[in-house]
Design a binder for these strands. Sequence first.
DNA 1: CTAGGGTTAG
Length: 587
Amino acid sequence: MVTGYAAAQVSDCCYEAFEVVKLMRYEDGLEPNRVTLVSLLQAAANVGAYKEGRAVHGYAVRRSIDSFDEILETSLMDMYSKCGDLRMSKLIFDRMSKRCIGSWNALIAAHVQIGQPLGAFEIFQRMLQEDILPDMITLANLLSSCGDLKFLRQGKSIHGYLIRRQVQLDLVATTALIEMYCKCNRTNQGRILFDEIEAQDVIMFNVMVSGYLQAGFPDKALKTVCQMIEAGRKPNPATILNLLSVAADLREIRIGKKVHAYVVRQGIGSNVDIANQLISMYGKFGRIEMARQIFNRITRKDLFSWTSMITSYAQHGYASDALMVFRLIHEERLQPDLVTLVSLLQAISSLGCLTLAKEVHGHIYRNRLEKEILILNSLLTTYAKCGSLGMAECLFKSIVKKSQISWNAMISAFGMHGKCLEAIDLFNQMLKEGFQPDDITFTSILSACSHGGYVEEGWRIFQSMAEKHSVTPNTEHYSCAIDLFSRSGRLEEAYSLVQHLPPRERISALDALLSSCRVYGNVEVADIVGKELLDLDPDNSGTYILLANIYSEAGKWDAAARIREIAKTKSLARQPGYSMIESASVQ
DNA sequence: CTAGGGTTAG
């Protein structure tokens, strides 16, 4: 009777389970027994309801429940570990007179939860020393934390342990191993294990597919889904989610639409998770109306739905819509989390509204998010984009545990405001404090130098990239450096860097360079640049005109005439200019 | 215990 009460509710919802137990106590005068408490602890653990979990613990102690056995104690440990209270979990473990494998697993889970994977591995060692045979739950826990933390060595050693102990690698174990290898960037190794299995199940296919997705191989992911269909496995919701990511990553809206149609045909369009993924996919394609339509039709929107919608709006210039959607969240009894706020800040950045940025700042403090580096970095950039370099700098200084991204954000904030010297100073300070600059650091700093005309400084930093910081300059870096030289008239040096660019970028760089040649009246470089540009892009009438102008301004009438002649024989007419506004109003 | 989703710096 008592047991039936709580147990039935646990799977459903934690807080309802607690309500039921309250009813049980106050209306029926029944006191919870051991089984009730275990059920409640499970419920609390499932949703991380720390307060409720502690209350149960307190109740058990007060009532001095007779049989404080290893099951109840393990449930307590489990609850504390899932709520991130490693200390309590450990305390109970140490005091236990009799332990079951679940107690060990709970302790391992506690370490994983709190972000001390090494501690988890120590417990594992201790288990082995005490001759306690880890079960698959133990190993799955360890393998999944290996994956999350990219602990390839430890993952491999567990793999080795399984082989040494001749544990039969069944579907579940192999799946856990595949996931671990994929998350450690060893998709090939994962695939080898995958292929060794005769009949993979849907879960294993899904793990392999998401491994490819996370490794940035959407094409391989898609191919694997096709293999899955050929093998006669029916896609499940997780497969659909993967496929929608594939479509977004491949930038193939056709695939996305096909999957969407399949979802509708299968009648699973009401699945919130799938709907959320559809929103984010259509959002990435800029199909905002579609995203909104799907959003509107979700009956039970969760925080992911709201955040996806806000992100879709924010990233496509619909900042005020993003803001409007954000304001509706509270009405749904949902609390925005830090990801929601980061999306919101993106919207605010594009509005450039400092007041709103400050409002979010207040919200962050009220909700105890002021230690979340992710959101602080985001807020810093928002302040800078809303015109307040001062607030950005103040925030930067107040961040106790700066990340490399904080430095990048502040450097680029200085760059945005044309404060090149400050950017360089901060860059040096960043090095002094032992942070590794990356490609983005250099993009910011080089573009600041280029806009501020600090050629020497910029060039020195460019050269230091590969030499001192082992960052290989990419296209953007070369473009910045070319810009740096060409703006200040050092056209030969600018030209010498152009060859590092891929063809498409090379054309636009040469184009800009040719314009600089005109500004500085440099016919020699214009000769070379013009020739190369006409080779690469012979049908651009602008090049002929620009080149002819350069020649005639330098008094080289013959050369100018010759160029105009070539243009004429190629019958290149100047493309008539048109205005977007005009064509819009004509429609 | 094993499948996934919204996210910061240019």
